[in-house]
């Protein structure tokens, strides 16, 4: 498995939306590298014909009836928000990315 570079950390930090100061990039790179080296032992296991397990309980088809439940009031919904205007969540300007 390839090692984690400083550039990898920059890329991961962007994907994860974490502003990591440039003086800490090497620190994270070396720590992630050490952890990855340890967990990379999984590759030693022969898993041909093994089905991956995403859920520990084998149940299927658990549904909710289409019946309205209790919603929050706008006040309750907005109470924890850092910034609010006109019963909406106020957010800094959105760069057009989507």
């Amino acid at each position: 498995m390839s090692a984690i570079s400083r550039d990898d950390v920059v890329h991961l930090a962007h994907l994860a939306r974490i502003d990591i100061p440039s003086d800490q990039l090497d620190h994270y790179a070396s720590q992630l590298d050490a952890i990855l080296e340890a967990v990379a032992t999984v590759s030693a296991v022969d898993t041909d014909n093994v089905v991956p397990m995403s859920h520990p309980v084998p149940s299927t088809n658990v549904f909710r009836e289409d019946v309205p439940g209790q919603s929050l009031t706008a006040n309750e919904a907005l109470a924890g928000a850092p910034a609010v205007e006109d019963d909406r969540f106020r957010v800094p300007r959105i760069l057009d990315e989507e």
Partner: peptide, 13 residues
């Protein structure tokens, strides 16, 4: 596949 996928298979084991 190498990491998450493989880990989920080990989970099965």
């Amino acid at each position: 596949d190498a990491y998450y996928g493989q880990a989920q298979k080990i989970r099965t084991l």
